[in-house]
Nucleic acid binder design. Sequence first.
DNA 1: TCTGGGGTCCTAGGACCC
DNA 2: TCTGGGGTCCTAGGACCC
Length: 409
Amino acid sequence: MASPHTPTLPERLIAHLDMDAFYASVELLRYPELKGLPVVVGGRRMHEPKTLPDGSRQYARLRDYTGRGVITTSTYAARDLGVFSGMGLMKAALRAPDAILLPTDFDRYRHFSRLFKAAVAEIAPVIEDRGIDEIYIDLSEVPGVRESVGHDPQGGVRAVAREIKNAVQRATGLTCSIGVTPNKLLSKIASELDKPDGLTLLRADEIPSRIWPLAVRKINGIGPKANAKLESLGIETVGELAAADPQMLIAQFGRSYGHWLHEAAHGRDERPVVTHSEPVSISRETTFERDLHAKLDRAELGAIFTRLCEQLAGDLARKGYLGRTIGIKLRFVGFRTVTRDLTLDLPTQDAQTIRQAAGACLKRVDLSQRLRLLGVRVGSLSRPGDPAPARRPTRRVDSGPKPENLSLF
DNA sequence: TCTGGGGTCCTAGGACCC
DNA sequence: TCTGGGGTCCTAGGACCC
């Protein structure tokens, strides 16, 4: 407990910045005539817009798409038609057949990602990367942030957040939404409250009025499973979660997650803004256009497998990592997913070594069902100069020869 | 007409070591 | 010959996120 003699720490000021419909907005910059229309980005097939002789452009429609693939981003006009990120394109086509479909151009999104992050860093350098289109920013030490403007005690914060939004707009031509609160958990929620082009400031004393009415699913870390279970317990809002008996939550969800649920519902979160982090694993995976069978499609699968290993080796080399744990991921028809991994004595970067280890992993899987996805992963990463890992005697892996292992790879 | 690709973190059991 | 306890590594699966 804080005694009168221990100075209380100043409350942190953390921002969460989320680019609005990022991929779709980047596409609208080059196809401005699509502004306001339902547009969806996603899919893997070639559906580039065609420029006609008269200079006008012809776009693919959602109804034209066949094959596997999901929506990566949709414009707000498309969302109004009920098509959202993660939805299968074929399903989306039933809801919005006339929506325009654009292919993803990750290089371009990465470029704009660098632009907006650099613009923010000029104003507030303490940034945590949370992927291509969002960041956390620690504003606590930003000059002017704690000054009040007029009688608005948050005037300084608001001004700095506005400045950040303007800088992002100038650098990219894009809008973003920002939430500023005492921690990452609340800021993540706050940035969504006024999307798009939003700016939401929230103090701890506003949690009951602003946060508790929200659905528990709005909390980052409560996914579909936890949500369903909470619902079955009669808990739908954050306020109901906050009022729930912590011991009951622990009994239902386990010590760690149960305790976290309670803390999160009360808006408590001490996680720092992490400005540097090292990757834990690097992977490549692909979903096939049609389901493949290990025996019937042996040559095709073998070629894909080798290609994934080569791409992965390329990624490792480019990023400057070695990995000691090689793993595979298989997804069968029906979406059952299986993983196997194998830790080598020494880290590697070599495609053939990876391919061989991954092949050994594959031998431990029953391959009688058709596959829809194959992936390869490298973990236990190190840098080329790092000291060699302490070797432990290789233990027998009981691979128990599978009757349906078709010894293909 | 089901459900991409890239990740992180957690849990849990067995091996192995002290 | 019933039964220890802790710590770390390895492996598999699953929830969750962007």
